[in-house]
Amino acid sequence: MGIFSRMTDIINSNISALLDKAEDPQKMIRMIIQEMEETLVEVRSSSARVIADRKTAGRRLERLSEEAHEWESKAEMAINKGREDLARAALAEKREVEQEVNLVESELKELDGHLNHLSEEISQLQTKLNDAKAKQKAVMMRKASVEHRMKVKRQTHRAALDDAFAKFEHFERRMDNLEGQVEAMDLGMDVKSDLKSEIDALANDDAVNDELERLKAKLKTKVSEKDQ
């Protein structure tokens, strides 16, 4: 693609539409700006060459104009000297120089038109570049804002999770404490229960033995009464 075709495409392009379609707007606008800057450098270089050509043509036109004026002066001198033949020859030379002057003037006119066109193109391209840089700044600010908001949300969510975990751990600790208190109340209960059972068993045994002795005594009394 030629420089001017590329420049025209850039000037006519809709940067906002390109960014809307881009998967990575930041990368896309960097590429757009780089393309614009490179094109602007090329266009300015081309303009510099045209300006140099115009200066060369301008100096040539000046020399030709002086030369045409000299031939006319020589023709006048020849007429004054009665040499009409030399006057004709001088005027013929002047005519050839004037034809060349006309060509150089046409060249200058084309160069001026080309420079005006380049100046307009550069102005439009510079405006487009400024717009792209402004959009780049906006994109970067939006990206930074989104990243900051994401960071804040992550921190908020993390803080909420940490708080939830802390509350859950606190609840578990309370439950552990309550369970510990209940289990502490049961400590030694089995030992006391077994001891009580044994003591009660001994008491029951004594009662049974007393009752047994009582019955034996009763029976012995009855036997003694029968023998009498």
Rank of each mutant, 00 (worst) to 15 (best):
Lys109Trp: 10
Gln181Val: 07
Leu178Met: 10
His148Pro: 01
Arg173Gly: 13
Gln26Pro: 14
Glu84Ala: 02
Lys218Glu: 15
Lys226Val: 09
Ser224Gly: 09
Ser46Arg: 04
Met140Arg: 14
Ser119Ala: 08
Ala90Asn: 05
Glu66His: 12
Lys55Tyr: 06
Glu84Phe: 08
Lys133Leu: 09
Thr127Val: 14
Ile3Arg: 02
Lys27Gly: 08
Leu91Asp: 08
Ser193Glu: 11
Trp71Thr: 15
Ser197Gly: 15
Gln181Asp: 13
Thr39Cys: 00
Glu42Cys: 05
Met150Val: 15
Arg44Thr: 07
Ala159Cys: 06
Ala164Cys: 10
Val146Glu: 03
Lys74Leu: 08
Glu110Gly: 03
Thr221Asp: 12
Glu198Phe: 03
Ser73Cys: 11
Ala207Tyr: 10
Glu107His: 05
Glu66Ala: 14
Phe171Glu: 13
Ile3Cys: 02
Glu213Cys: 13
Ala92Gln: 04
Leu212Ile: 05
Lys151Pro: 06
Asp186Ile: 01
Arg142Met: 14
Ala75Arg: 00
His69Met: 15
Lys74Gly: 04
Ile79Ser: 14
Lys226Asp: 05
Gly58Pro: 06
Leu111Lys: 00
Lys143Asp: 13
Gln181Ala: 10
Lys81Tyr: 14
Glu72Ala: 07
His69Leu: 15
Phe171Gly: 13
Val41Gly: 07
Val50Glu: 06
Gln228Tyr: 12
Lys21Asp: 06
Met150Leu: 14
Leu187Met: 15
Arg49Leu: 08
Arg174Leu: 10
Ser45Phe: 04
Lys226Arg: 09
Ile11Gly: 00
Asp205Ile: 08
Asn12Thr: 11
Leu86Gln: 01
Leu219Asn: 02
Gly82Val: 01
Met185Gly: 11
Lys21Ala: 14
Glu62Asp: 04
Thr221Ile: 13
Met185Ser: 12
Glu179Met: 14
Ser45Ala: 09
Arg59Pro: 07
Leu202Ile: 15
Leu195Phe: 08
Lys226Ala: 09
Ala87Trp: 00
Met140Ile: 10
Arg54Met: 14
Glu225Val: 11
Asn102Gln: 11
Glu169Phe: 05
Arg60Val: 03
Ala78Phe: 01
Lys151Val: 08
Asp85Gln: 00
Ile15Phe: 00
Lys135Ile: 05
Gln126Met: 02
Trp71Ile: 06
Lys128Ala: 00
Lys133Glu: 07
Ala207Pro: 10
Asn80Glu: 10
Ala201Pro: 06
Ala184Leu: 07
Gln99Arg: 07
Thr56Trp: 04
Arg49Pro: 02
